[in-house]
Amino acid sequence: MQKKGLKLTDVLTTVVIAIVFGIVYKVWGPLYYAVKPLGLHLDQLIYGMWFIAATVAYLLIRKPGVALLAEVAAASGEFLAGSEWGLEVLFYGFVQGLFAELVFAAFRYKRFDVAVVSLAAVGSTIASLVLDFYKGYIDQLAWWNLTLFIGARFVGAIIIAGVFAYSLVKALEATGVTQLLRPTTKEDYDSLDK
């Protein structure tokens, strides 16, 4: 079992996947402000799409550092494609990726199930809320409005960056392409001995 850092193969694959999501992130912007019906925060339900690069990349490549790299790369892709939010996506990307990475690290990069990625999505949500707290004065919204805002974002994040990301990777596993990516596990070696 190799335990070194990311190799060029891992980095390139992560970045390529992330740039695909970066384009999705860019397209998601106009969609986000199109579904913003006067502050009732339905838009927050689709906010979770901006967390998906980290969870998908982690589930695919299963190595430390991949989640952070993917989210930063996706944010850079979005930024270079001329995001409406400009500079701030770089900060949001970094902090969201970092919080997702911390969740994976807390499980020592050993669990790859729907619960862990949902928890990572929750981590990214908290990260985005912390930045919103400073940037958007969200604590100054009326309390019922704020509750709706935060609730919708958590729900959307778990559905999109948690459950949907997981089912996406499950479908990719069926194509067999993931076998190229993952490090060989102990089970693989054991199965050779049988």
């Binding site: 193969t9 694959t13 089912s167 194509t175 392409v177 993931t178 990516l181």
Partner: peptide
């Protein structure tokens, strides 16, 4: 979204692998 994403992602991953090998 899945219908579009699966072929695009799987092809990208395969291509990234090949390119990484030659870059190394």
């Amino acid at each position: 979204v899945k219908r579009y994403a699966i072929p695009l992602l799987s092809q990208s991953i395969r291509r990234a692998q090949r390119i990484a090998v030659s870059m190394e």
